[in-house]
Amino acid sequence: MNYFSTVVALLRDRKEFLEEIHDSVKLKSKISALMLCSFCFFALYGAIIGTFHSPLQALSSAIKLPALYLITLLVCLPTLYIFNVLFGSKQSIAQHFTYLLTAVSVIAVLLCGFAPVTLFFLITVNDYSFFLLLNVAIFALTGVLGVSFLYQIMKPISDSDTGEGVKVRTSILRFWLGLYGFVGSQLGWTLRPFFGSPGQFELFRPREGSFFSGVWNAIVNLLT
């Protein structure tokens, strides 16, 4: 399928790819390809981390991990678009969506890059807390890289305009990145388990606590 060639084009010739988004060239194709490819990459990584528990968990995580990233993006997209348009952006919602999908695809590709490492630790280590923290670190690293990538690619759009709007939209983008992380971590908490703690298979866990309290508990468990 030529969907993957879109991601390859993004990785190989980023400048031209971003210029095409800026000029609204083949946006629908790009959206479709980036969405399907990022889904496949996330599903692959989700299946790997789910394998730590059971095949059923692998299946569940293969659907839940793409859902986490893509739903978060869809939830936060209108905020970014509406605020940007309000402060002078000329970009369409399809362009905004493509930019965001580009960043999410970069995260997906980075996660796939870590897949062999995760697979290695999956085979050699049988410690739930370690595996959980390893993946939190991987997700944090790929997330930071993806977010900084998004910050870089959306900044030139601001640079093309002049005046007060530029500063405001840069601040909006920073705020939005924080919002994206916040929504993402909470959705992740809602859709958990992705790894599956030792014991019976669970499709979803009861709604209690938050993402941050969960990470804290894992650190405490590892140290004690």
Binding site: L36, C40, L70, I71, L191
Partner: peptide, 27 residues
């Protein structure tokens, strides 16, 4: 198949919210 799985992934929160008040636990 991939589009079906993608759509299925997007329906997860809807299903989860519908199951919130269900007497049968989702697990």
């Amino acid at each position: 198949v991939v589009v079906f799985l993608l759509v299925f992934a997007f329906t997860l929160p809807i299903g989860l919210s519908l199951m919130r008040d269900s007497s049968n636990g989702v697990n």
